[in-house]
Amino acid sequence: MFDRPSGGDAVVLVSVDFGDSDYDESLHELRHLAGTAGLNISATLEGKRQAPDPKHFIGSGKADELKRLMAVHDSKVAAFNHDLSPSQQRNLEKLLEARVVDRTGLILDIFAQRAQSHEGKLQVELAQLEHLSTRLVRGWTHLERQKGGIGVRGGPGETQLELDRRMLRVRVKQLREKLDKLKQQRGMQRRARKRSNLMTVSLVGYTNAGKSTLFNRLTHSGVYAADQLFATLDTTSRKMHLPEGYPVVLSDTVGFIKHLPTTLIEAFGATLEEAAQADLLLHVVDVASPNRDAQVEQVNIVLNEIGAARVPQILVLNQIDRMAMAPAIDRDEYGNIRTVRVSAKDGTGIEDLRQALLEHQQYLKKLSTEERAYV
Rank of each mutant, 00 (worst) to 15 (best):
E144Q: 12
R338I: 15
S15C: 11
M199F: 10
L126Q: 08
T200G: 06
F18T: 08
G157W: 05
T232A: 03
L106P: 02
I329H: 09
E65H: 12
S117V: 05
L129S: 05
P156D: 09
Q89L: 11
E371Q: 15
G222M: 06
P52K: 04
G245W: 10
G120L: 05
A112C: 09
A328L: 10
H241N: 07
L106E: 09
T369R: 15
V11Y: 08
L358K: 09
V201G: 03
G19V: 06
D346Y: 00
T262W: 00
L358G: 04
R169F: 01
L303D: 03
T44G: 07
L233D: 06
H28M: 13
G349Q: 00
G8F: 03
D102K: 02
P86V: 03
R68V: 11
P5W: 02
I301R: 14
A309Y: 01
P247G: 05
V77G: 11
L95C: 04
Y334G: 14
H283C: 03
F215H: 02
V254T: 02
I58D: 09
K194F: 08
A288K: 10
A356I: 11
T141A: 15
S221Q: 10
G7W: 09
E244Q: 14
A225G: 02
Q88W: 05
L39D: 10
F57G: 03
L353G: 10
T200M: 15
A308Y: 00
G255Q: 01
V124W: 04
V284C: 10
T263R: 04
G59D: 00
I150N: 11
E266W: 01
H220A: 12
G210V: 08
Q89I: 06
D109N: 14
V316M: 07
H241T: 06
H73F: 13
E371F: 05
Q277I: 07
D234S: 01
S251F: 00
A79R: 00
V311W: 09
A344Q: 02
L203A: 01
T271W: 02
F111A: 02
H32W: 08
E29V: 11
V152F: 14
P327K: 05
Q123R: 03
Q88R: 09
Y224F: 14
L179D: 02
Y334W: 12
G105F: 02
D3G: 13
L30A: 04
V249S: 04
T232G: 10
S21A: 15
G61D: 13
R99G: 15
E244V: 00
R341W: 11
R103C: 04
R145Y: 12
H82C: 08
V77W: 06
D102E: 09
R103V: 05
S221L: 08
S26W: 06
D332P: 11
T236N: 00
I306Q: 07
R190Q: 10
S87D: 13
R166L: 01
F57M: 05
L95P: 10
L214C: 07
A43S: 15
I301F: 14
T253C: 05
P327D: 06
R190N: 03
Q116L: 11
A373I: 08
R195T: 10
